[in-house]
Amino acid sequence: MASQGTKRSYEQMETDGERQNATEIRASVGKMIDGIGRFYIQMCTELKLSDYEGRLIQNSLTIERMVLSAFDERRNKYLEEHPSAGKDPKKTGGPIYKRVDRKWMRELVLYDKEEIRRIWRQANNGDDATAGLTHMMIWHSNLNDTTYQRTRALVRTGMDPRMCSLMQGSTLPRRSGAAGAAVKGVGTMVMELIRMIKRGINDRNFWRGENGRKTRSAYERMCNILKGKFQTAAQRAMMDQVRESRNPGNAEIEDLIFLARSALILRGSVAHKSCLPACVYGPAVASGYDFEKEGYSLVGIDPFKLLQNSQVYSLIRPNENPAHKSQLVWMACNSAAFEDLRVLSFIRGTKVSPRGKLSTRGVQIASNENMDAMESSTLELRSRYWAIRTRSGGNTNQQRASAGQISVQPAFSVQRNLPFDKPTIMAAFTGNTEGRTSDMRAEIIRMMEGAKPEEMSFQGRGVFELSDERAANPIVPSFDMSNEGSYFFGDNAEEYDN
């Protein structure tokens, strides 16, 4: 993207840094990872977990959730003011799984939030270390993106479920800051804005008074975040219109849905970061690795190297396929839920299948599930090659597409044709070009129609051997075009429920 120079890199967003050079960025990201790792080690000690239990991804998720809940100030305040039966607002906890007599047992633990905050700050040299908290939120978000298709949420806001490739980060909490905003897809931002506008339509006082002023500035800020994701002048001009509207209503909703559809071809720039579970960072720190000293990046080879040398386990339900569970977590670790499966298959070195073909449910185990038949197995999170994460949407291309997802959002900077089903997408653009945004709409449609099938995206960008740390010898991959490109292809993934 041309304006790259004016933006802070995501590592800076990730670490609240002012302008830093590459070495400083690597050190501050490393410091953040160190903090998460030290916190995780301490929690495993508190909970008396064995090494194996500490490497269980379900335990990692519970521990991450506990610290996120302990620092969720708004919710904590709300819980104190609106006490609900049987919930102690000062405590947080969740299921911890232990191996007892050759069987997995679930144990519900409860801790004072104050105590968890103390352990977290102690692991982070006394700081609140917001960057580390956001990092864990993005890992949870990436896992949700890989596990669930947001059909219901899309339909509720009037969008087409086939636009799911635009929904990265749709389950990120509001408090995820600049680093969170960077990884949100165009569809996620559109959905947040539509929800806001709908509230304004239904509630006369939404934009009024002292609160209304705050609401208005939040609305304009979200519009600017979305505008910054678009790469064409016409899309940005249309966002200006939406932002400046005196009284946002149905016309703005129409414009936003139009823009979301246009992003299936004229893709937005959305950041991709490899955020790993805390149970990967903990053992690495415990083994003596100093992330701050060595430096770390979320968008280069580092996460690949770390996963190459990590042992992570997962509980497996009786009829689940461990290899499929591994694929789910591998995609989440690489922030690749909406990437082209052919690119992923090449990088991973084994075939990556669409969601609907995987015999696996989510990673988390519900409290009512029976533990008797639970097994555990090693997650295979290694890769054959590594590639640089991208934040450009890439230019655009036609490809055989599917009944489910009709476009992709690249996660890796790797040369390819970008699949999208042009006739299906263009069919949504018939007729409606009147109104105050008509010239911009016409211009956007013209650009979409001009998108050429034979153009290559990320020209000359390749993948790298894991021994090639400096990215000196790019390998331009070859793809098996007979395979499906979309992950949520004609899909039956479970729906995400809060």
Results as ranks from 00 to 15, higher is better:
Met1Asn: 11
Ser9Ile: 12
Tyr10Asp: 11
Glu11Tyr: 06
Gln12Thr: 08
Gln12Tyr: 02
Met13Asn: 05
Gly17Met: 14
Glu18Val: 15
Glu18Asp: 15
Asn21Val: 05
Glu24Pro: 01
Glu24Phe: 04
Arg26Ala: 10
Ala27Phe: 06
Gly30Gln: 15
Lys31Ile: 05
Met32Ser: 13
Ile33Gln: 00
Gly35His: 13
Gly37Asn: 08
Gly37Phe: 09
Arg38Ala: 12
Phe39Glu: 04
Met43Ser: 04
Tyr52Gln: 02
Glu53Tyr: 14
Ile57His: 02
Asn59Pro: 04
Leu61Arg: 01
Leu61Asp: 13
Met66Thr: 09
Ser69His: 09
Ser69Trp: 10
Ser69Ala: 13
Ala70Val: 04
Phe71His: 10
Asp72Arg: 12
Lys77Gly: 13
Leu79Pro: 04
Leu79Gly: 04
Glu81Cys: 13
His82Glu: 00
Pro83Arg: 09
Gly86Glu: 02
Lys87Trp: 04
Pro89Leu: 07
Gly93Pro: 11
Tyr97Gln: 10
Lys98Met: 15
Arg99Cys: 09
Arg102Phe: 14
Met105Phe: 14
Met105Ile: 10
Leu108Val: 12
Leu108Ser: 11
Leu110Cys: 08
Glu114Lys: 14
Glu114Pro: 01
Glu115Ile: 06
Arg118Asn: 06
Ile119His: 10
Gln122Arg: 08
Ala123Phe: 04
Ala123Tyr: 02
Asn124Ala: 08
Gly126Leu: 15
Asp127Tyr: 06
Ala131Cys: 03
Leu133Ser: 02
Thr134Tyr: 12
Met137Trp: 08
His140Thr: 10
Ser141Ala: 14
Ser141Met: 07
Asn142Asp: 11
Leu143Ala: 03
Asn144Glu: 04
Asp145Tyr: 09
Asp145Gln: 04
Thr146Pro: 01
Tyr148Gly: 05
Tyr148Trp: 04
Gln149Val: 09
Gln149His: 08
Thr151Asp: 06
Thr151Arg: 06
Ala153Ile: 04
Leu154Glu: 03
Leu154Lys: 04
Pro161Asp: 02
Pro161Gln: 12
Met163Leu: 12
Ser165Glu: 01
Leu166Thr: 08
Met167Phe: 02
Met167Asp: 01
Gln168Pro: 11
Ser170Ala: 09
Arg174Glu: 05
Arg174Gly: 11
Arg175Val: 05
Ser176Glu: 04
Ala182Lys: 02
Val183Asn: 01
Gly185Tyr: 05
Gly187Cys: 10
Thr188Cys: 09
Met189Asn: 02
Met189Pro: 01
Val190Asn: 03
Met191Gly: 04
Glu192His: 01
Ile194Tyr: 05
Met196His: 02
Asn202Ala: 11
Asn202Trp: 14
Asp203Asn: 10
Trp207His: 02
Gly209Asn: 13
Gly209Glu: 07
Glu210Trp: 10
Glu210Met: 08
Asn211Lys: 02
Asn211His: 04
Arg216Ile: 04
Ser217Ala: 14
Cys223Glu: 11
Cys223Ser: 11
Gly228Lys: 11
Gln231Asn: 08
Ala237Lys: 05
Met238Lys: 02
Met239Glu: 04
Asp240Val: 06
Gln241Pro: 02
Arg246His: 12
Arg246Pro: 11
Ala251His: 03
Glu252Asn: 13
Glu252Val: 13
Glu252His: 07
Ile253Tyr: 05
Glu254Gly: 11
Asp255Thr: 05
Phe258His: 10
Ala260His: 10
Leu264Gln: 15
Ile265Asn: 02
Ile265Trp: 01
Leu266Tyr: 05
Arg267Gly: 05
Val270Trp: 06
Ala271Arg: 07
Lys273Asp: 04
Ser274Tyr: 10
Ser274Gly: 11
Leu276His: 12
Ala278Gly: 15
Cys279Lys: 10
Cys279Arg: 03
Val280Asn: 10
Val280Leu: 10
Tyr281Leu: 05
Tyr281Met: 07
Pro283His: 10
Ala286Gln: 12
Ala286Ser: 11
Ser287His: 11
Tyr289Asn: 10
Tyr289Glu: 03
Asp290His: 11
Phe291Arg: 08
Phe291Ile: 08
Glu292His: 13
Lys293Arg: 13
Lys293His: 15
Glu294Cys: 13
Tyr296Cys: 11
Leu298Ile: 10
Val299Asp: 05
Val299Ala: 07
Val299Gly: 03
Ile301Glu: 07
Asp302Ser: 14
Asp302Phe: 04
Pro303Met: 11
Pro303Tyr: 03
Pro303Cys: 13
Lys305Asn: 11
Leu306Val: 10
Gln308Pro: 00
Asn309Met: 12
Asn309Lys: 15
Ser310Phe: 08
Val312Leu: 13
Ser314Ile: 05
Ser314Arg: 02
Ser314Leu: 02
Leu315Met: 15
Ile316Pro: 02
Pro318Leu: 12
Pro318Val: 13
Asn319Pro: 01
Asn319His: 13
Asn321Ser: 10
His324Tyr: 10
Lys325Ser: 07
Gln327Ile: 07
Gln327Val: 11
Leu328Gly: 04
Val329Arg: 03
Trp330Leu: 08
Cys333Tyr: 09
Ala336Glu: 01
Ala337Trp: 12
Asp340Gln: 10
Asp340Ser: 14
Arg342Asn: 05
Val343Cys: 08
Ser345Pro: 05
Ile347Leu: 14
Arg348Pro: 06
Lys351Val: 10
Val352Cys: 05
Val352Gln: 13
Ser353Phe: 12
Pro354Ile: 06
Arg355Asp: 08
Gly356Asn: 09
Thr360Lys: 05
Gln364Pro: 03
Ala366Thr: 09
Ser367Met: 11
Asn368His: 07
Asp372Asn: 14
Met374Cys: 15
Glu375Pro: 02
Thr378His: 04
Glu380Lys: 10
Glu380Arg: 04
Leu381Arg: 02
Leu381Ser: 03
Ser383Arg: 01
Tyr385Cys: 06
Tyr385Asp: 10
Trp386Pro: 02
Ala387Arg: 01
Gly393Arg: 06
Gly393Ser: 15
Asn395Ser: 14
Asn395Ile: 01
Asn397Glu: 00
Asn397Phe: 15
Gln398Asn: 04
Gln399Phe: 13
Arg400His: 14
Arg400Phe: 06
Ala403Asp: 01
Gly404Thr: 11
Gln405Trp: 11
Ile406Met: 11
Ser407Glu: 06
Val408Met: 15
Gln409Cys: 15
Ala411Arg: 08
Phe412Thr: 00
Ser413Asp: 00
Gln415Ile: 00
Arg416Ser: 08
Arg416Pro: 01
Asn417Ile: 14
Leu418Thr: 07
Leu418Tyr: 00
Leu418Ile: 15
Leu418Ala: 02
Phe420Ala: 15
Phe420Tyr: 15
Phe420Ile: 12
Asp421Leu: 14
Lys422Trp: 00
Met426Asn: 10
Met426Gln: 13
Ala427Phe: 00
Ala428Met: 03
Gly431Phe: 15
Asn432Gln: 14
Asn432Leu: 14
Thr433Tyr: 12
Ser438Met: 07
Asp439His: 10
Arg441His: 15
Arg441Gln: 05
Ala442Tyr: 02
Ile445Phe: 05
Met448Ala: 06
Met448Glu: 12
Glu449Gln: 09
Glu449Ser: 11
Glu449Ile: 03
Glu455Cys: 14
Phe464Thr: 05
Glu465Tyr: 00
Asp468Pro: 08
Glu469Arg: 04
Ala471Lys: 01
Ala472Val: 09
Ala472Met: 04
Asn473Tyr: 03
Pro474Asn: 02
Pro474Tyr: 00
Ile475Gly: 02
Val476Ala: 15
Pro477Ile: 10
Phe479Thr: 08
Asp480Gly: 02
Asp480Ser: 15
Met481Asn: 03
Glu484Val: 15
Ser486Pro: 07
Asp491Tyr: 12
Asn492Glu: 01
Glu494Tyr: 02
Tyr496Pro: 00
Asp497His: 03
Asp497Leu: 06
